[in-house]
Design a protein around this nucleic acid. Structure first.
Lengths: 154, 154
DNA sequence: TTTGAAAACTCTCGCGC
DNA sequence: GCGCGAGAGTTTTCAAA
């Protein structure tokens, strides 16, 4: 099983990252390949894990997620167990879209989606701040989203 | 044109955010609706802008985007023109996946995807730092990605 | 990788609730 | 208004070469 991507594979990934509703027929036309070839390539790209999933991207403001916040969290204890415990607990909160462990002075940065500041405040008090081992939390709030892309350049 | 979502619409959005490869037939079965109804609902959800697009989510490590960084950028000038100019220029860089204007002391936070630290360094020196009006840039680097979700709770 | 044919799915229309 | 059935038109799938 070769894992290297040839130019056709890369082009498929480039296109599907932007629009995964294209039919195999349309893709085949763009790539000058047969439909069966395109189908086979995509199947392999999924099997090999290049494509993790195909999802719908929603307009968050329309579904009442008007506020995005980035709390930076510093922990008291930095043992392996403490880090893992924090990650495990924080992942359970539905407001937490992403959780990254960082280098530097902040241990973690989260991306939180809530409807408004009141809801965020409740999340902070009733959920995040109740976790053991938290030292400090400094929250940044998004005023505007200038660029938001899920497609990596390939 | 009503804009409120009924429980069926919400369930459709919930499902498609996690897996948009389900056929209308499968969705119809899950929802106890007819195929035609499901089809009609999804069409409306796209037309009304709830669903912005359907995309493939890739495994970034497999496509040589091993490093995610969050540079926080402070500008010198804070006029409307200066902010807009910065947003416009930064959006052109292919390494920039996201750009948020923030409240608080940092003006912007970016999410940058590169293959490694060397490439990030080049991005910083040759691209980001060449923009006019930048005061300071403080970069955080991701050690590990604990949670990464594109699906909002609905 | 391609072809070709069968199976599955999509999408629209018109009727009924 | 909303949902459903049926059918033509597309797309996908899976042989075999």
């Amino acid at each position: 099983m070769s894992t290297a991507l040839d130019p056709t594979d890369k082009e498929i990934l480039r296109i599907l990252q932007k629009d995964a509703t294209l039919t195999n027929k349309e893709l085949a036309f763009k790539l000058n390949k047969s439909i069966a070839t395109v189908h086979e390539r995509i199947k392999k790209l999924k099997e090999q894990g290049y494509i993790k999933r195909i999802v719908a991207i929603l307009d968050r403001k329309k579904i009442d997620k008007g506020l995005i916040a980035f709390p930076q969290v510093l922990l008291k204890e930095h043992t392996a167990e403490a880090l893992i415990e924090f990650e495990k607990e924080v992942a359970k909160f539905s407001e937490v879209m992403e959780c990254f462990q960082l280098t530097g002075s902040s241990d973690f940065i989260l991306r939180i989606a809530t409807s408004d500041m009141d809801t965020y405040h409740l999340f902070l008090r009733n959920k995040l701040a109740t976790l053991p081992n938290i030292s400090t939390v400094q929250s940044f709030f998004v005023l505007s989203e200038t660029k938001s892309d899920t497609a990596y350049p390939i």
